[in-house]
């Protein structure tokens, strides 16, 4: 569907040169909910603007359904965008905004009216068709922006952090709403966010970006359970890192004891980083891969408790349901071998 190959973009020159995209390649499939995830400034918007046609790459190519579109101006691409600040036309009402794309495509009045009505229904705004834009709440404006981009039935819908301006509850609501719209319309969504939770709950696949590079592409579960790099593991969810060295016996020697891992290990003597999610650390259990420590801190957060366990050389956090442990008391933790990720970097 969208094939992006070796895109590079440098803004500025000389001392002020800033590599916004560094050799980015990715293929996005038809009907996919694809998310670009990364911290602010990592190049997500730049990549999206390139797909839309507002930015030209220095090198590389973008193909849509096999056709090169890299140098096609925005108005010739069957791609629509939901802008971060909505960018609704303030001098048009809701229906006029939503019908704008169809009008520009030269559709006749009857078809425009019918499509606008249907699209407004889809985003549940049919009762506000005649409203002025400044008479709408933020959430309603968001839906108008969505309807406006959906109405011309584009092949691809680009969304640049569309939910970041909404409050928590509305954001949750819109997340499922977007997912529903994507399933109902069958349009490919390319969604940009810096919110890892949003990415995990909504996406079919995620590309994690950092400093203009794509570090990993995969399904949410792959990204969460098998992060390819330390940055990815750290950026997505909470995680513990334990430094160690591979031993002759096929274990990893750490400052707090030897650990067995099921994942393949590099050659003996290599330094590696082990990573494990707090919810996979088992408190109080004895057995293989169990390390002795002291409970340093307990933090209750409603649906569970986080235990900070001091292992001498390092500290490990552990998420658990109930925690009948006292702060300052000895507490051992078990790190199941199959849950330990091996990262090299």
């Amino acid at each position: 569907m969208i094939e992006i190959s070796t895109l590079t973009k440098v803004f500025g020159s000389g001392q002020e040169a800033m590599t916004a995209l560094d050799n980015v390649s990715v293929t996005i499939a038809e009907n996919e909910f694809f998310t670009l995830l990364g911290p602010s400034g990592c190049g997500k918007t730049t990549l999206l603007r390139m797909i839309a046609g507002f930015e030209l790459p220095d090198t590389g190519e973008i193909r849509l359904d096999g056709q090169p579109v890299t140098h096609l101006p925005p108005h010739h691409r069957p791609i629509n965008t939901v802008f971060q600040n909505y960018a609704l036309f303030p001098h048009m009402n809701v229906a006029q905004n939503v019908g704008f794309g169809l009008e520009m495509l030269g559709r006749d009045r009857k078809e425009i009216d019918a499509t606008v009505a249907r699209t407004l229904e889809l985003v549940r705004l049919d009762h506000l068709a005649g409203r002025r834009i400044d008479q709408l709440s933020g959430g309603q404006q968001q839906r108008v922006a969505l309807a406006r981009a959906l109405a011309p039935a584009p092949k691809v819908l680009l969304l640049d952090e569309p939910l970041s301006a909404l409050d928590f509850k509305l954001r949750k609501e819109m997340q499922s709403e977007l997912k529903r719209l994507q399933l109902e319309t069958g349009i490919t969504f390319v969604f940009v966010t810096h919110d890892q939770e949003e990415a995990l709950t909504m996406s079919d696949r995620i590309a994690v970006m950092s400093a203009g590079k794509i570090l990993q592409i995969g399904r949410p579960m792959d990204i969460y359970d098998r992060p390819a790099a330390r940055f990815v593991a750290d950026f997505i969810g909470d995680i513990n890192f334990i430094e160690g060295t591979v031993t002759d016996g096929g274990t990893v020697a750490t400052g707090s004891g030897d650990l067995a891992v099921t994942a393949p290990l590099p050659a003996s003597g290599t330094t590696v980083t082990l990573a494990i999610r707090p919810e996979h650390v088992m408190p109080g259990a004895e057995g293989p891969n169990s390390l002795a420590g002291t409970l340093a801190e307990r933090v209750y957060f409603g649906s569970g408790t986080v235990l900070e366990v001091d292992l001498g050389a390092t500290r490990i956090s552990c998420r658990t349901g109930d925690a009948p442990f006292a702060e300052g008391a000895p507490l051992s933790v078990t790190l199941p071998p199959e849950r330990l990720q091996v990262l090299q970097d």
Binding site: A52, G53, F54, P73, P74, H75, I79, N80, T81, F83, N85, A87, L88, F89, F100, G101, M104, L105, R148, A149, P152
Partner: peptide
Amino acid sequence: TITLEQAAADLYATPWAAFRR
């Protein structure tokens, strides 16, 4: 904001149509 003209272009408006509308 220039984003308004970009939104128009994104919605298939030619540069002239974006200017006029």
